[in-house]
Amino acid sequence: MTQKPIYLVTGAGGFVGSHLVRYLADRGVRVRAMVRKPEQAAALEGLAEEVVIGDLQEPETLAPAVSGVAGIYHIAAVFRQEGLADEVFREINATGVRRMLDAGIEAGVPRFILCSTNGVHSDIDHPPADENYPFNPGDIYQQTKLEGELIAMEYFHEGRIRGLALRPTMIWGPGDGRMRKLFRMIAQRRFFYIGRGEALTHWIDVRDLCAAFKLAMDAEELNAEAFLIGGATFQTLRETTAEIAGQLGVKEPSLHLPVAPMMTLAWLTEMMCKPLGVEPPLFRRRVNFFLKNRAYSTDKAEKVLGFRPKQDLAGEISDIIAAYRISGDLPDNTNIQSREMHP
Score class of each variant (00 low, 15 high):
R190Q: 13
H74C: 02
N118M: 09
T201F: 07
G306A: 09
L8D: 09
D208W: 03
G13E: 10
V52H: 04
F192T: 04
G54L: 12
L44V: 05
H202R: 06
A25P: 00
G246R: 14
E340K: 12
F15W: 08
L276Y: 13
A42V: 03
E50I: 07
A314T: 12
S122W: 13
F213M: 01
D123P: 05
D218Y: 07
D299A: 15
G14T: 12
Q188W: 00
K303S: 15
L282A: 11
A226P: 00
T144V: 05
I124D: 08
A76N: 09
L209K: 01
A43P: 03
A216P: 00
P275E: 10
D86S: 11
R99P: 13
G108K: 11
G246W: 07
V250P: 08
A245V: 05
A232H: 06
R184F: 03
E39N: 12
L215Y: 07
N136G: 11
H121N: 12
E45G: 02
N93R: 05
G68Y: 04
P258I: 09
A25M: 02
I161Y: 09
V304G: 06
E302T: 14
A245M: 08
P137S: 03
M153G: 06
A42L: 02
V88Y: 14
A12Y: 11
R90Y: 14
G54Q: 11
E221Q: 15
A224C: 05
R32V: 12
K181V: 10
G28V: 08
D26C: 02
D130S: 09
L313I: 11
Y133W: 13
F79M: 14
A63E: 15
L257R: 05
Y133R: 04
D205K: 02
E58H: 12
A94N: 07
D26A: 15
A76Y: 06
R180P: 00
E158W: 00
G96E: 09
T233W: 04
I336E: 10
I75R: 01
R80V: 14
Q81T: 13
I113R: 01
Y7Q: 03
A25R: 13
I53T: 10
L237D: 01
Y23Q: 03
M217I: 02
L222Y: 04
A260G: 08
K300Q: 10
Q337A: 14
M262I: 11
A226G: 02
A48T: 04
E302K: 13
I105F: 05
D176L: 02
D329V: 00
D139V: 02
E131W: 07
R99A: 10
P38R: 08
T144H: 06
P258A: 09
R167V: 00
V35C: 09
E279R: 13
R27D: 11
V31F: 08
R98G: 14
V35L: 09
I124L: 11
G197S: 05
R325K: 11
E198P: 00
V16W: 01
F307L: 04
G277E: 12
P174V: 01
G46K: 03
E158D: 13
R162G: 06
G195D: 07
I92H: 09
E82P: 00
Q247V: 10
